[in-house]
Amino acid sequence: MHAVYSFLTGPLAWVAFGIFFGGIAYRLVSRALLARKRDTAVFEYWSFYHALRSILHWICPFASVNSRRRPVLSVVTFVFHVALLAAPLFLFAHITLINEAFGVHWWFMPDGLADVLTLAVLGACIFFFVRRKVRPEVAYLTTAGDYAILALVAAPFLSGFWAYHQLPGHAAATLLHIFSGEVLLVIIPFTKLSHMFFFPFTRGYMGSEFGAVRFARDW
């Protein structure tokens, strides 16, 4: 068990973070070079002001027409993304591990809040799952991969919750937590989860086109 733990938190963690950061860098740089070659419009019409304006309208709930049309989904999506990023980044246990390894630390949230955020992520995953099942326009688009990604996103949160609360089998849950977290990091750059880092560019480009060339809103 200890050997597995050491492997997961040692070499595999290095590999996972390496692929995560390296993968994102590779995807962004190679995509930018391709755009330089084939989509010169992206650079030509890019406007930081209009890009930011559009991005802000689309990350704040209710700041776009479509967001106002779907209040429940807007709130769930917003809470989901905030919780998804905040819980792992500001978790006491994670920061302790990083502090022990590298001697750096930052603000952490109370464990109670982390629990709430974790449950929010899991609740949102269930919401998204049901939405994919019941809404015809979403069900039509949904692939097996979409469900797999949903499961892979939920896994570290579920196993983390399990481990923290010392539920039966928590030792295995701890290992599963670390492993599933690493799997998630590795797949982010190469799956639909790449929307994490492509979002500012797709939205920003449309915002630039609409704002600086078309003189129209895009929200």
Binding site: R31, K37, R38, D39
Partner: peptide, 27 residues
Amino acid sequence: GEAGARLKTYVETCVHCGLCSEACHFY
């Protein structure tokens, strides 16, 4: 030869959320 960054990024980034549906008069 012709598909560039935009085409690839659009196809890869779509998360199949279906939120575009009600924009379209055909739908």
